[in-house]
Amino acid sequence: MSALAERRDLSTEETGWAVRETVAGRAPAVALAGFLAALRVKGETVEELFGVVEALLAAAIPVRVDRPCHDIAGTGGDGTGAMNLSTLAAIVAAGAGCTVVKHGGRAASSQTAGSADLIEALGLPLANSAEPCRGAGAGRFRYLFAPEVNPGLRHAVDARRGLGIPTIFNLAAPLINPARPEHPVIGVADAGRVRMLAETLQRLGRRGLVVHGHDGLDKLTTTDVSEVWIVREDSLQQLVFDPTALGLPRAGPTDLRGATAAENAERARAVLSGRRGPLRDAVVLNAAAVIVAGDVTRTDFETRLEGGIRQAEEAIDRGSAAAVLDDTREDRVRRDRQAGEVSP
Rank of each mutant, 00 (worst) to 15 (best):
V185N: 07
G187E: 15
L175E: 01
P184V: 09
N177V: 00
E199H: 01
G164A: 15
E182P: 05
P178I: 12
T200S: 01
I168K: 02
N177K: 00
A179R: 11
P166N: 15
A189E: 06
A198I: 04
N170M: 13
A189W: 07
T167V: 10
P174S: 05
P184T: 04
A179P: 12
E182I: 02
R203H: 05
A179M: 10
N177F: 00
R180Y: 04
A191D: 14
P174F: 03
N170Q: 15
G187F: 13
R203Y: 02
A173D: 08
A173G: 06
I168T: 13
G187R: 14
D190A: 13
A189R: 11
A191V: 14
R180T: 11
N177I: 02
P178V: 13
M196K: 01
R195Q: 11
E182N: 08
R206A: 10
A198T: 05
A172L: 08
E199P: 10
A191H: 15
A189P: 10
V194S: 10
R195F: 01
L201R: 01
L175W: 00
G208Y: 01
A179S: 12
R195P: 00
G187T: 13
T200F: 04
G208F: 03
V188S: 07
I176C: 06
Q202G: 10
H183V: 03
